[in-house]
Write a protein that binds this DNA or RNA. Structure first.
Lengths: 140, 140
DNA sequence: TCCTAGCTTAGACTATGTCTAAACAAAGAA
DNA sequence: TTCTTTGTTTAGACATAGTCTAAGCTAGGA
């Protein structure tokens, strides 16, 4: 049973077969897929599924607040089904491997008032960068 | 005199007229331009300048470490000439306005060892999101 | 049953960025 | 000076990621 599907249903969102396949594909993996990767995997289960439906569905899930959109490499967006859970990202500059990580406090607390320029700051995310164990070994 | 040009020259990088115009366009503004915006403005000073040269030059300046590449909205990359200066970004979710900000400490220190997954973590950047004063006023 | 609203589809279109091949430019050698 | 080498610039083709459109489809209510 998909937790994401349950959360989506709470918004009175119609769960069509296409949307179910997309949600389950998104949730069934530990990595954050791009839209194309989700399309590729979902099509294995539902061959007639179209590219437009995948893009539409992902955008709607983001708008509902149940999926996070990540733009970390400047190429394509990635989708993270863990929308409620506060976390950050660690990226390998060698191979692009990405991990979810947790910091010790909320970075919003570390932005002084005089650096806020009158904004109401609601959230903050940290992108850590470095080399994963494999790329460190390859570089030495 | 452009400080960025001086820094680029230190790398024994040939400062051609095209490269100078691009560097000065990049540095002469307080906002972070996209490649297309830089092209548009640089062409006013040098009409024969090509798109490929702008993209090549920006990528080379990033590779030299003198310019930062930002991918904050998932659409197009933006370029920040302040590469040496440790700072983060505050973005308005209403209108996209972006400000440079400074946090009170280095977020690398706030990532526990058991959250590093064996990576050598070299840097971290924080993206703060909220609403700017104008968008707060418009929303209320 | 029919109607209606919303969903899905294929493919055209747009935006952003990269690649290629040829022309050009600068600096050193003869 | 002319030749050669190396690096730079150019126009335009190409690639990739994502959006839009118009038509058809589907589920649920009247």
């Amino acid at each position: 049973m998909s937790d994401l599907v349950t959360r989506l249903r709470r918004h009175n969102w119609r769960i069509t077969p296409q949307r179910r396949v997309i949600a389950e594909t998104l949730e069934g993996s530990h990595v954050h897929f791009t839209a194309e990767e989700i399309l590729e995997r979902a099509v294995e289960r539902m061959p007639e599924l179209s590219r437009a439906t995948v893009y539409n569905t992902l955008n709607e899930m983001v708008a509902l607040g149940e999926v996070l959109e990540l733009t970390l490499d400047g190429r394509s967006k990635r989708y993270d089904p863990n929308a409620d859970h506060e976390h950050h990202h660690l990226i390998c500059e060698g191979c692009g491997l990405m991990k979810d990580v947790h910091a010790m406090a909320d970075p919003v607390d570390w932005l002084p008032g005089d650096e806020r320029h009158g904004f109401s700051v609601t959230r903050a995310s940290i992108t850590y960068r470095g080399l994963c164990p494999e790329c460190q070994a390859a570089a030495s």
